[in-house]
Write a protein that binds this DNA or RNA. Structure first.
Length: 718
DNA sequence: AGCACGCCGACT
DNA sequence: GTCGGCGTGCTC
């Protein structure tokens, strides 16, 4: 009797592969286990997703599984079900998602070291080698190096052919590096945090929060999948979260809490750790390998009752998962747009369905799509405001000259006189968004991307914000020889110049990527501001995401209004949310907030300034309904990128035609040049699709995409 | 992804 | 003439 296994690999291939299971491995082979299997000429680590007796369709001769790598399998069937759905939803690779879900200790694939064999050494010494072979042999003469290093040193694009040839000739060999020994400091670390364990779980509950928690608890108790949306202020939401977490804990269940970015939720996490001690586990990208490993073990052993982390924590191996909370649901960081593409909110839904757990999305300013769904499908729970939202004054820039309005300037003067601090946000790096020749209008552009180079005056260079290309700033226009003066839309460096000019006595600091490339300098600027040694702190988006902003009493927000002109149906939502975040971050201590804009009447700016989410939502949803944008339809953007535009266009046309023939339920727009028509030297073409229902879109895409041979990340919006 | 095959330009 | 560049296709 033959037994077969279906295996997926961490490759950008959305297929399973069938293998025979040799008799010796049958007992150990279970769904969810990692396996070693021959794949082409190499051997890869994959994941068993199915074991069965019927011979699957496939090539006439199936290969054998070589080894089973873990005995209790690494993934539960429920976990597999959830990741499968998620990968299908985003048209990304199942195996890559599973790879992303492995703990750091085994996820780190051992790096192969390349070294010379004795024969290789001899040949090199005898001087019989030439060209690339000679260069490689000389490099490896006294030391073995990793593949990436060799590639960089040889300045080669692809060394696989070279390596294969030399391995065949017996000149070099590759050997796996010893895997990391998973040494952790788990025990000592646990003792350190044990202090908080016995603290009573005391929560101050507003009546509104109490009522909200009650409604969600009713759903939670059913021990089945349920979905709730909690709209309320941060303290109210937190109170509800803790109440639910406590209930789940009491029933022996566990909670997974996803947050946008650790630094934005530092306070929440602090209180969680304080209240739960060692029963809380925290994951984030700043942790060292060892710290991650320790937290991972705590989660896997079941010791942690609550796990907090960013989008990657979606895959944490939480057992008896009863509740999944996504806080600040509207935040863009829940979407991972590279490698395995996924949306952690959607992922939370899939995982909760598979685990029969409850999902709670929370926000004060929800994303339009989820809020609409929550309201129309009856899973919205609103905490009636116990704390009023932040408010701001709007200044119309139409009659102003320079970057600072008279009103903001006046307010700054006032704070300086009172020795109070000021924060000013301008979300544009550098001195200006581009250089423009005053005579012939020539604009220096990046050679590899379809975008103007930003001008950085302080470092006197031009920078591409897509690919990082930089070059010394041009003095004269290469086309007509005229001298460059200034540029286009001013950035934070220009703001700094103006502020210093207008307030020569003020102590000014600028927090942006260029100056603060090194972390030390960043913390130094923040420290100084915190100690009151800086009067006016200027910064970009980067500053918004810092913890420990100084206690300013005045916040200026200079809006880059170009954002609202973008051909993106989410532009208004982005503007609203960006403003709200800056208002909240800067105005945490009741500071006065002034928003400067050229579009004072745009509803996203007006309502953000008033802190009136419902008013913003009503206008935005009207617009979406009128133009048939999500959530009233499902949009998909399919990107084609490559070196040759003609070939791309051809592939995109074929794809578009296939969708058209597949049925009339999907509207096709394009192919057209993508908004960023060239990126890192690759041309980009996009096709946009619109369907009434997400299911239709997924069905058609899953049917059509495998037949198109181009790299094709897909973004679904519904 | 990685590896092989196959087809064109510039060097011993 | 070949070496080595990249485009194309496949991996159970």
């Amino acid at each position: 009797m033959n037994v077969y296994a279906e295996v997926v690999f961490p490759l950008p291939v959305s297929r399973t592969f069938s293998y025979r299971l040799p008799a010796a491995l049958r007992d150990k082979a279970r769904v969810g286990a990692r396996v070693a299997a021959p794949f082409g000429r190499r051997q890869l680590t994959g994941f068993i997703v199915h074991v069965g007796l019927t011979r699957p369709a496939g090539p006439s001769e199936l290969k054998d599984i070589v080894d089973i790598l873990d005995d209790p399998p690494h993934f539960t069937p429920r976990f597999l079900a959830f990741t499968r759905l998620l990968s299908r939803y985003h048209y990304s690779s199942w195996g890559e998602l599973l790879q992303a879900a492995l703990p750091p200790s085994i996820a780190a694939r051992p790096q192969a070291l390349i070294s010379l064999t004795a024969a290789g050494r001899q040949s090199a010494a005898a001087g019989v080698l030439a060209g690339a072979e000679k260069a490689l042999a000389e490099l490896l003469m006294d030391k073995a190096y990793s593949r990436v290093y060799v590639k960089r040193r040889l300045k080669a694009k692809d060394i696989s052919a070279l390596l294969a040839r030399m391995v065949n000739k017996g000149l070099v060999e590759t050997r796996d590096r010893a895997p990391r020994t998973g040494k952790t400091r788990t025990d000592t670390e646990e003792k350190k945090v044990r202090g908080g364990r016995q603290l009573p779980l005391d929560f101050s509950f507003s009546p509104g929060a109490q009522a909200a928690a009650g409604k969600i608890l009713d759903r939670l108790r059913q021990q089945a999948f349920s979905l709730s949306f909690l709209q309320g202020s941060a303290p109210d939401r937190e109170a509800v979260y803790f109440r639910l977490i406590r209930t789940v804990m009491a029933g022996g269940g566990r909670t997974l809490l996803l947050v946008p970015e650790i630094s934005l939720s530092a306070a929440l996490i602090g209180r969680l750790e304080q209240k739960l001690g060692e029963r809380a586990a925290v994951l984030h990208s700043r942790q060292t390998e060892n710290q991650k490993e320790a937290e991972w073990r705590k989660i896997q052993s079941g010791k942690a009752a609550v796990v907090v982390g960013p989008r990657s924590a979606l895959f944490a191996p939480v057992r008896d998962l009863r509740l999944m909370i996504v806080d600040e649901e509207q935040d863009g960081s829940f979407i991972q747009s590279e490698n395995p593409v996924f949306d952690a909110r959607q992922g939370a839904l899939f995982r909760a369905k598979a685990e029969k757990a409850a999902v709670l999305l929370g926000s004060a300013t929800p994303s339009v799509g989820w809020f609409h769904r929550a309201r129309s499908e009856g899973f919205l729970v609103t905490v009636e405001g116990s704390s009023p939202p932040a408010k701001a004054r709007v200044v119309d820039m139409a009659r102003e000259r320079g970057l600072l309005s008279r009103e903001l300037e006046e307010a700054i003067r006032d704070r300086l006189a009172r020795r109070e601090q000021v924060l000013v946000f301008l979300n544009r790096k550098g001195y200006s968004s581009a250089l423009v020749c005053p005579r012939c209008r020539y604009i220096p552009k990046c050679a590899r991307c379809d975008i103007a180079l930003t001008y950085h005056k302080r470092e006197d260079k031009l920078l591409c914000r897509y690919c990082g290309y930089e070059t010394p700033a041009l003095v004269r226009c290469p086309r007509c020889g005229e001298k460059f003066r200034g540029g286009r839309e001013p950035g934070v460096e220009a703001l700094e110049e103006e502020v210093r000019r207008k307030f020569p006595a003020g102590r000014v600091a600028c927090f942006d990527t260029e100056v603060t490339a090194r972390r030390r300098e960043r913390t130094k600027v923040l420290d100084e501001a915190g100690q009151g040694r800086i009067d006016i702190l200027l910064g970009t988006q980067l500053l918004v995401h810092q913890t420990g902003l100084p206690p300013a009493t005045l916040v200026g927000i200079l809006t880059p209004d170009a954002l609202l002109g973008l051909a993106d149906y989410r532009a208004a939502q982005k503007a609203y949310q960006g403003l709200t975040l800056m208002m909240r971050r800067g105005g945490e201590n009741g500071a006065e907030v002034i928003i400067q804009t050229a579009l004072p009447d745009h509803y996203s700016i007006r309502e953000a300034a008033r802190g009136d989410y419902p008013a913003f939502f009503e206008q935005e949803i009207k617009f979406r309904r009128l133009l048939d944008y999500p959530p009233f339809s499902c949009l998909a953007e399919v990107f084609f990128s490559g070196g040759d535009l003609r070939r791309l266009a051809a592939a995109a046309r074929i794809f578009a035609n296939q969708i058209k023939t597949a049925g009339k339920s999907i509207r096709v727009y394009g192919p057209a040049l993508a908004p960023v028509a060239m990126l890192r030297g690759l041309r980009r073409v996009q096709v946009t699709l619109r369907a009434r229902r997400t299911e239709t879109m997924m069905k058609v895409l899953n049917h059509t995409l495998p037949e198109v041979r181009v790299k094709k990340p897909v973004f679904l919006f519904d």
